[in-house]
Design a protein around this nucleic acid. Sequence first.
RNA 1: GGCGGCGUAGCCAAGUGGUUAAGGCGGAGGUCUGCAAAACCUCUAUUCAGCGGUUCGAAUCCGCUCGCCGCCUCCA
Length: 473
Amino acid sequence: MIYNTLTRRKEEFRPLAGDTVRMYVCGVTVYDLSHAGHARSAIVFDVIRRYLAYRGYQVRFVKNFTDVDDKIIRRANEEGVPPSLVSERNIEEYHADMAAIGVAPADEEPKATEHVPRMIQLIQRLVAKGVAYAVDGDVFFEIRKFPGYGKLSGKKLEDLVAGARVEVDERKRDPLDFALWKASKPGEPAWESPWGPGRPGWHVECSAMSMQYLGETFDIHGGGEDLIFPHHENEIAQSEGATGRPFARFWIHNGLANLGAQKMSKSLGNTLTIKDLARRHDPEALRLYLLGTHYRNPLDFAEARIDEAGRALERFRALLEAADRLASRGTPAPGSDDGLLGTVGSLRERFQAAMDDDFNAPQAIAALFEMASVLHAYRDALERDERPVGPFLLGVNELLTLGHVLGLFQKPVEPAGPPREVAERIEALVRARDGARARRDWRRADALRSEIAALGAITEDTPHGTRWKWTPR
RNA sequence: GGCGGCGUAGCCAAGUGGUUAAGGCGGAGGUCUGCAAAACCUCUAUUCAGCGGUUCGAAUCCGCUCGCCGCCUCCA
């Protein structure tokens, strides 16, 4: 079941063609660095894509870059560089940001500037059908000619006109008509067209590129809920106006991350860029935090919550590390698992049921936490040699698999360690402390523990020896 | 003004007509430990902004009130 903005209901999801899911998500306009809200959207659709793949679908995923628009041009003028430099730089930054937060690249990441001929074709089709008109080198879409206008956003034309605060271009036949093609002013990027030199309007790029890569009708179109109107509404009008066929079947919109609680920064906009977040926090903690709120709900972004999520992550990581260590100690061996795998199996079903119900990641994560609990309990018994190791390894593997579906546990379990010399010193101190402990010289042992702590590590004594963890301040 | 959403424990956050209201963080107690750490166990909302109503039964449906937010303009 997926909530479809178009129908305002959860609907059973079936792809149009067999096992292939074709999905398009509106990417970013690359005039600046991406921020927390972009991260949320990217992670939400990354998880949707991963889950569909986990469910056995072949997902064809397209995410665009808007690399020509007013803001890019303005930024370029401010910096005194060509617009392409601004957009290329920010596309690189975007790729780096996505890699940093574990978002996999889309199968196709088309740029608007590389698809202008397609857009011109689409506009020509609309003009030929009589639903678009050219004035002085601009081309507008005539919304009154598209009966379904407003069906996605639930807006009535009369209300829109009444409340319109847009400055009205009197060349438009209706104030709501929107630009498909803009005649370019001197110094702006321009492409030749039947209407003279110009550049595409914002909305038309997504229609042209989505249909080029996915066909005239495809399964899922996504984006932030701020895009519902007018962007997505206009995409529907253009696409269906041209093809006469349904455009996207399911519309998925993520709730916005507002920084309301976070007072807007001193000078310019708030500085919660992905770059800053990735530098200050564990990216997986960020992901766990963001997925802890259902994707359609608004999220009040708070950095302290990311650190909380980081503490919760430790419980998973301890398990993965334990499995790594224990893997060498035995293979799946017969013996009672005390119901472990049965419990793990039913938790996996809960995970799936949650994700099947409109990608309820918070509930899916709850199942994962419970899975971690039973695995840890089993591990406790195992460390006392009361249980075979096989079931534990299988259970952790299940946890790992489901975590991957949410894009968690992507990094190697090896956490960043201290520099070699420090590690060697710590090792030496740990050995010395073990010696002291063997002599039951507690005072000496505690003194050594303090020294180890001063170097930035915490000791953990177990039945199988002392371990230490690097916990840099 | 129009359209839409939200208000659940100290904090974050699921649940949207019917067994004990998920889960996380924090907190309290316990087990383990030389002491710790980590982990595990138990506890931490007789109650879901407030007031009415519908119903055998409501956090979940309806109405009103209070508070907060989004979109209607570029925006993930």
